[in-house]
Nucleic acid binder design. Structure first.
Lengths: 241, 241
DNA sequence: AGCAATTTGTATCAGATTGTCGCATTTCGT
DNA sequence: ACGAAATGCGACAATCTGATACAAATTGCT
């Protein structure tokens, strides 16, 4: 058996499926194709165990969102979502549903390849395949404990650090998407959902405020890293407990 | 025969064709023009073997999409597509799959040039066979430790050396391709991927900046060697840990 | 309702990062 | 050794980010 990573592409559009398949194979991947949710489930039941799934959001019948959720619950495999143009909401829902990354159509195959590689790298670097803990429950990171039931942050000595609602939401977004770069739009969507679009840089302020509370040295952040021109990244091992 | 790269522009609009021809010639390219699919096929049959084709999507008669597919199947040449803004999404997606890049009209000639360059340098792909470590995890080299999960560089005594996003990306590119010459285009491709195409020699500056941080004596580099006329080479034993 | 405290978006400016330019220096072919 | 071409790098401008200050909005309390 080959050691090429195995990718499963799920899209109802035949052209896209075939072209993606060809493109990924050209780049040293083993590729399987499925045209809808039924085929996806069948393949997963056959235990083909792909290393990554590329999933179209908009499909007749069962849509990508519920499929993604199903995958999350029943399989340990990273997912990259394809979302239609202009569907700002969907891409973020995709993230919330547990996709590891998304890509808006139209996209360059080259870019998809880059994301696939990046997601694989993350999946590989973490003990479990999963990128971050599911929402809910207690979470440990660095020397902190975040209790998502009580919305509280405590340090190793159980001393509580008060967080404002905004700070808490931002921290949750980070905790649920660790070790991946989140740009300001994504962070806004994750924290404020679909509400009014505030000034892009309001998030900077929140980051700044949050850093002051959780970073050992806010001037040299180790938890929330700035990615110049890209956004922010929560670089930390996150453990569900 | 000249060593200028040869570009074939296919567009039914005379003014666009001429404008592009003039602009690309100004920038050291050899340019041929075709006004429709018939001419394109004829030129290809004549074996003019362009290094790249700029192809308009919307053309009377045979459209760009089917032409692109035809090119894919019968010739090994990169294609940059021109698409009108607001065209039906599905069609665009289809074309994305076949073309190496696309550009929405109206476009800035400068931007087209950037894409053309990017696609070309991609075509001269990296040698196969990876010699360095896979992305992800910790990596040791010289007296340094590069943590690709935290995006941090530390010395043997665990003292962190702050790297900017650009410096970090460049170092990763080197670490993942050690002991092989990487030219500037390849380095740009590895660090910036698909994005804006900066002045070729911006990479020189990044190398210079990186050297100052990781070389013992930046004036006599031992880690990042200059290969005159070829690029740079990371000469170092890299160990995954 | 009235008022203070808290939270959060916006404005602003200092500092950091990065692409580009210009010129000195190095390298190579002749 | 000489000139052409390639590279090194300091300088600069454009852009991005961090942090402070402030105003608007929200909340808690009487």
């Amino acid at each position: 058996m080959s050691d090429q990573p195995h990718i499963l592409v799920v899209d109802d559009h035949r052209d896209i499926r075939d072209l993606l398949g060809r493109y990924l194979r050209q780049h040293e991947y083993r590729v399987s194709l499925a045209s809808d949710g039924r085929e996806l489930r069948k393949l997963m039941a056959d235990d083909i165990a792909p290393d990554l799934i590329v999933l179209d959001l908009m499909m007749p019948g069962e849509d990508g969102l519920s499929l993604c959720r199903w995958l999350r619950e029943n399989h340990d495999v990273p997912v990259v979502m394809l979302t239609a143009l202009g569907e700002e909401t969907d891409r973020i829902i995709g993230l919330e549903m547990g996709a590891d990354d998304y890509l808006a159509k139209p996209f360059n195959p080259r870019e998809l390849l880059a994301r696939v590689k990046a997601v694989m790298r993350r999946a590989q670097s973490l003990p479990v395949g999963r990128k971050g803990p599911l929402p809910g429950g207690q979470v440990h990171f660095d020397r902190w404990i975040l209790d998502r039931t009580r919305h509280e942050l405590r340090d190793a000595n159980d001393v509580m650090v008060p967080l404002s609602a905004g700070e808490y939401g931002l921290l949750c977004a980070f905790v649920e998407h660790p070790n991946m770069v989140l740009n300001r739009d994504q962070l806004l969507d994750l924290t404020r959902g679909r509400e009014a679009i505030p000034f892009d840089r309001s998030i900077d302020n929140q980051v700044s405020r949050l850093r002051k509370k959780i970073e050992h040295d806010a001037k040299n952040p180790t938890l929330i890293k700035t990615v110049w021109g890209g956004g922010y990244m929560f670089t930390c091992e996150v453990a569900e407990k």
